[in-house]
Amino acid sequence: MLAFGARIAAQARIGDVIALYGGLGAGKTTIARGLLAALGLEGEAPSPSFAIVQPYDVPEVRLPVAHVDLYRLDGAEEAAELALGDYLADSLLILEWPARLGDALWPHSLRLTIEMLEDGARRLTADVPDAWTERWSQI
């Protein structure tokens, strides 16, 4: 999961949204940590479960990132109060538990779903929007 996050980081751009779906312990935060490390973050990135939004800025990382964990929100109304769209002007947005946004997820979002299998393995399914089509082949 860390290595996969690093491969995504190599293709990530300002204005991108990476939406991570999966149950507790599936590996969403691990993918985000791999991505952040590949962008230059030294040390371990904390899970934003309690802060909800954990921003990272240059020079800490090579491009600004907002790592968001929506798990504790009750729904789209609370998520709207975070004004997450404002980050898209100058940051990469990583979303854990994006289903809490309801129908408000941006159509250009790269949607990654992690399923935990009975044998402990994980299956990753990607919904790749047009904005990522060419870049996805490099991941």
Rank of each mutant, 00 (worst) to 15 (best):
T29N: 05
T30I: 10
T30R: 10
I31M: 14
I31G: 13
I31H: 11
A32V: 07
R33V: 00
R33I: 00
R33S: 07
R33E: 11
G34N: 05
L35Q: 06
A37T: 14
A38G: 12
L39Q: 03
L41D: 04
E42H: 08
G43C: 09
E44W: 03
A45M: 12
I52A: 02
I52M: 02
V53Y: 12
V53E: 04
V53M: 01
Q54V: 02
P55D: 03
Y56V: 09
D57V: 07
D57S: 13
V58Y: 09
E60K: 10
V61Y: 11
V61T: 07
V61C: 11
R62D: 11
R62I: 12
R62N: 12
L63C: 07
L63Q: 03
P64R: 14
H67I: 10
D69C: 02
L70H: 07
L70W: 08
Y71F: 11
R72G: 03
R72S: 05
D74G: 15
D74S: 12
E77Y: 07
A80N: 04
A80R: 15
A80D: 15
L82C: 01
L82M: 03
A83R: 01
L84I: 09
L88W: 01
A89M: 02
D90F: 01
D90Y: 04
D90K: 08
L93P: 13
E96I: 04
E96A: 12
W97L: 04
P98F: 14
P98A: 14
P98D: 11
A99Y: 01
A99N: 14
A99I: 01
R100E: 10
R100V: 10
R100I: 01
R100G: 00
D103V: 04
D103P: 13
D103H: 08
W106N: 06
P107G: 07
P107F: 08
S109K: 00
L110R: 10
L110P: 10
R111D: 06
R111L: 09
R111A: 11
L112Q: 12
E115N: 14
E115L: 14
M116S: 15
M116P: 01
L117D: 15
D119K: 06
G120N: 07
G120C: 06
G120P: 13
A121Y: 00
R122W: 02
L124M: 14
T125A: 11
A126T: 07
D127V: 03
V128C: 10
P129I: 13
D130F: 04
A131P: 00
A131H: 06
W132Q: 03
E134L: 15
W136G: 04
S137A: 15
Q138H: 14
